[in-house]
Design a protein around this nucleic acid. Sequence first.
DNA 1: CCTATTTGACCACA
DNA 2: TGTGGTCAAATAGG
Length: 323
Amino acid sequence: MDWEQSTLLKELTQGMELTNLLRKHLHPSSPPETRQVLLDKILCSYEKALSMLNWSEFMVETKPKISTLGSPASIACSSHTFKKRKTCSGWSERMRVCSGTSFEGPLDDGYCWRKYGQKDILGSNFPRGYYRCTHRYSQGCLADKQVQRSDEDPTIFEVRYRGTHTCNRASDSVATKLPSTTESEAKDHHSQQQEQLEEKQKQSKEILLSFETGLKVKTEDLDDIFPSFSFPIESGVEDGLFVKSLMENHMAFVSPTTSESNYFSVSPFHIGQNLQTSESVLTEIISAPTSVTNSPIVDLDISSLQKLEFDPSFPFDNPEFFY
DNA sequence: CCTATTTGACCACA
DNA sequence: TGTGGTCAAATAGG
């Protein structure tokens, strides 16, 4: 956790320094663009710091409790095959990503994941893939996800997320902050790889965009499966986290690839910002169907989320953002 | 070379 | 002891 602490400290310190810098540029003679850039950078720093704190807090708060997630078989199979097994806590609720066609493989959610395992799951027809953020060691990003093809509908992928992304893809192309003896040579190679990566993501998103109309993200409220488990205090946290994961994905799904719209290539930390302002609304949307006992599945279309993702105060007109 | 994936081994936990 | 999660060596691929 030393890395996390130092990064947190660094982000907060940077935020303070930038604020001081901004103060100097408050003069009307100073160009407004500079203020805008500084403001954006400050927000970026603080959001990153907050994002890290959220993750730590989440780890502490949810660890002792039993996960509200059922076994993977709980959804695919009827309840008689369900085992009340404590899965690894801290996972977000399940999201079901449907491609609408027989589109091969799990959908690209905009992040770089590295597969580290695959396991056949008892009672499931399809194996579960285990992924972690590519930047786990380079940037200490602790985001994880599990992907499993649904038994009911093989075109649907059930995706579960754990942790939030603290990585910053924008910083990849910039020289790495970590001390490295082979920095210069690694940098060239890295930026080259980054280009390939971006190209790959671009292609995926283009495909995704063409699928947008048929794309569905569903969640299931597992309180129906765990009626005896009620965590009124934590449920808000969980909803928030779930929404965060959901937002991150939708963010990726709707990301345009054109160069003129930089906003959508923004880091997840900004999703967090928007999330905080609109969380109650989103939570309401998502938790509303929990009272519906016979249909716990929620369909969320892109447009409803897209509206919420837009922050009217966001500086759309600033091309320097994240550069 | 380097990075990503595959896959059997290993481990923790119930 | 069985299961799900993770590790790490082997392998693939650019």
